[in-house]
Amino acid sequence: MKAETVAVGGLGIGMAAGRYSQGRRRMVVGAIMLAAALGALGLASLAIGDEALRTNLPARHLPPSWQHPFGTDWLGRDMLARTLEGLWLSLRIGLAASLAGTAIAAAAGLSAALYGRTADRIIGWLADLFLSLPHLVTLILIAFVCGGGLQGIMIGVALTHWPSLARLIRAEALQLRSADFVHASRRLGRSRWWILSRHLLPHLLPQLMTGFLLMFPHAILHEAAITFIGLGLPPDQPAIGIILSESMRYLNAGMWWLALFPGLALLLLVRSFDRLGEAARAVWSPRRSHH
């Protein structure tokens, strides 16, 4: 699904920019590979079932082997299976949170640009307010307020990540608002909503999608951090942060595989999304200077 939307967006915007075709091809290939990896991850987490996650005490604390490539934990559960499950959960939380964050950013940025000075001031001030606290402190506060759980993490991550994208959208929308075709539409008596949906949103779509793609890895990292701290999910929902925080207790005993592989998997996932986001930005906003 993701690869498709990305490819369509690339075709739409790329018409004017032939010389970016190489970057675009790289992006599409990257997107397809990532989508395939995600599909495999989803399928794997469906296929794993309870068998691999069941307590199996004779097989506890096994270092990596062919049978258990990531080793087993203190209950004899297969770490590969747990890692895949955890990644899948983190991925879904990150997706929901960054979609919400992008939506907030779009709404805030557009309102700031279109609904007059007062709205602009208020939204700018709100953005400053959210930037005035370290992300992690805001996350702790919101997770505490929501009493832990999925909801708190998603709300927290969405609320901490919108300001910078909202500013970008606002600046872009301000420029678009004074474009000739928007003036023409307004003189023709089009409604504000019509102009918004027909003129502004299509132009802002690449920004929004890039913003989303760049927000997504951050969302996953923050989600992992907050669950690692112990403020997020209950231990029966093993997101990747929980797996890592549990492995903390066994580091002194030299069980390196409990921490190394889940973290490495998380790193790879985040890194590939980050690369996709950067590639998308390079293709969709040619203004960026050095590469």
């Binding site: 690692f228 890592l244 580091l251 002194n252 985040v270």
Partner: peptide, 29 residues
């Protein structure tokens, strides 16, 4: 830089802990 930007910092801390603290024993845990 790009790799580090996508590294969970607490995981990096755990790696340091394992390598320098537990294995090599250079630093306290």
């Amino acid at each position: 830089c790009c790799t580090l930007a996508s590294t969970p910092s607490f995981w990096l801390a755990m790696l340091f802990l394992m390598v320098f603290g537990v294995w090599l024993g250079w630093f306290p845990v």
